[in-house]
Design a protein around this nucleic acid. Structure first.
Lengths: 342, 342
DNA sequence: TACAGTTTTACAATCATTATTAAAATTGAT
DNA sequence: ATCAATTTTAATAATGATTGTAAAACTGTA
């Protein structure tokens, strides 16, 4: 593993010239550049990144912090981010917080010490104090999926309140009267937004919101299963359920099936996320889709932009992509429509 | 962001002493250690990782290379690896090759330049030449899921040939006579192993292997769907299918359902992987399970062990975990058993 | 040859740490 | 108080690339 000095010696030039070939090739004559390039491959030389980073104060890596690596939506973010990062020559550090604020904070600390170039924070549990800490260190961050505009922090988000509103309004239009709600962990802001959307849709339709119709889940399959079992004990039994994500919806459907309840004939279900699997279960899940992968791409792009233009005045971008209803079978659309016209 | 010199000055000691407090606290008197510790918090000092790495020639990060971030099994590996890495104070670089050998090579090159401490290579497409390259640089690697022992390279694997053998043997025991096979990308070694297992099981049972019963998939849902459609055109129609992974199996079941073929009444399906979702579809999928998450944990553990003991003589470990049949509904076990006793 | 313009050099400083070696301080025993 | 042994600290070198400055060595043209 040769260093720049040896390359310079072999080429009969100064280290400054070799360095310039590496960093400002336009300031070096094409002939010498070619010659030095050749010698570098020949010697299998590549500049020592540690030394370079020490000097430049950049690591050429970005980090993605997600709450749950087992959630396919989280992985879609990662897929998008990885793609852009690799394409732009950045490494991607993956940080899975397991929905644990302490682990998230520990990661943040680790990353700041590591002098990471930038961070994408998805569905964060951090508090304002934590953000202040990060901003003090001047590390660019992108907030992903957070519908709260923070001063000087760029964000990429989808409106989960709106999405929930659309979903529940759909159920209302189909004529359902007792619409239950299985919500996700309330420490996550986007889940609170969904709750707001659920309530607002009911209120707008003149229905009243009953807390007994809200069942607490924890964003994963098993908690969806459990919530559905509880929900069945409710009398009168709900005739439709809005589930805050597809994973829980799939758990819920599984529970209903084991209990012999038919979906959508006995109960309609609507999910959120439009994960790939939601089209493979029986009945195919009606759900709210939002462009996670694309949002992952965008996040990485604007993060890297911020990293590379950190000299200029900072431009804070807040990018918004809307959710859309994806109608399939789990709300028995066709069946219901005819019922309505009975 | 103070440096070690400023801390030293403030404490009235030399930088060497501060450094020793950081790295060999036992070689420093408890009083001065305490005093300097206090000053370090006070000044919010943390040692510069670039300078440290430059000196120590280690980055404190490991990389995980996987072929497909969208495959839940791949993410289970990542989950295990991330857990151990974080616990031991390492950062995890995530590299998604998208099953592209060029991208995999480009990552390897990037990582070697980055002087990564170690690499976990899952389901690699690399050739011997690539390995030689890596070994020349002396970077510890762990091969994941590769049933090929390479000299001086530790590995963690499950026997996919055996798993396929178990699956197909199960179908044979259930009395199926025309057992088709939807295989995964043949450039992946573990898929070739599964093919071997499929053939061996048939041969052992005295059945003959027919190439027309083998359908090429590409490891994802859609290719499973397509393969199933082709399979239906076969006459006589297969009465059971071994699918090389659950993702494709789910795609296949979806195709069969759209074509009005019942599973397991008309065709039985057995998958591979036992992904969480496989228990949520209708019918619940019979499949072969293997401990991916655990293997992820182990991989990270032995990798970090190798990284940290790189001074000692190297111990090559080859760790093996066996697959197990998970019987659910998609082969119509109960139904079939009774048929057999008719 | 002289001149302007471009390209390259030599050298030092910088980044922040750790390892090595040598020196200083402390301890206990006499 | 003295000496040796031990502990603790200091001083310096090494890690490898980047950058800047001032001087030198090349171009080609007139």
């Amino acid at each position: 593993m040769p260093n720049i000095r040896e390359v310079a010696k072999r080429a009969g030039v100064s280290v400054a010239t070799v360095s310039r070939v590496l960093n400002h090739p336009e300031r070096v004559s094409p002939q010498t550049k070619d010659r030095i390039d050749k010698i570098m491959v020949e010697m299998d030389f590549s500049p020592n990144v540690f030394a370079r980073s020490l000097n430049l104060k950049r690591s050429n890596s970005i980090a993605l912090i997600i709450p749950d690596i087992q959630n396919p939506q989280n992985m879609e973010i990662a897929r998008g981010v990885e793609r852009v990062a690799h394409q732009k020559g950045y490494n991607l550090l993956l940080c899975n917080t397991e929905k644990d604020r302490e682990k998230e904070q520990s990661y943040i600390r680790m990353l700041m010490e590591k002098k990471i170039d930038g961070i994408i924070l998805a569905f964060t549990l951090l508090l304002q104090a934590d953000f202040d800490e990060i901003q003090k260190k001047n590390i660019p961050i992108i907030l992903f999926g957070q519908n709260v505009l923070k001063k000087n922090i760029s964000s990429v988000y989808s409106d989960f309140k709106e999405g929930a509103f659309i979903a529940v309004s759909h159920l209302i239009e189909l004529g359902f009267k007792r619409i239950a709600y299985i919500c996700g962990g309330e420490d996550h802001l986007e889940n609170r937004d969904k709750t707001l959307g659920y309530k607002e849709a009911l209120l707008k339709a003149g229905d009243k919101v009953s807390e007994e119709m809200i069942f607490q889940g924890k964003d994963d399959i098993d908690s969806g299963y459990l919530a559905a079992l509880k929900l069945l004990k409710q009398t009168p039994r709900p005739d439709a359920v809005f589930v805050a994500n597809d994973l829980m919806a799939m758990g819920a459907i599984d529970a209903l099936r084991t209990e012999g309840i038919r979906v959508p004939e006995d109960i309609s279900i609507i999910g959120y996320d439009n994960i790939k699997m939601s089209a493979l279960i029986e009945p195919k899940l009606t759900t709210v889709s939002w462009p996670v992968y694309k949002m992952g791409l965008i996040s990485a792009r604007i993060l890297i932009e911020e990293v590379e233009n950190s000299g200029d005045v900072k431009m804070t971008q807040n990018i918004f992509l809307s959710p859309k209803l994806k109608i399939r079978k789990s709300c028995g659309h066709e069946a219901r429509v005819s019922e309505i016209f009975d």
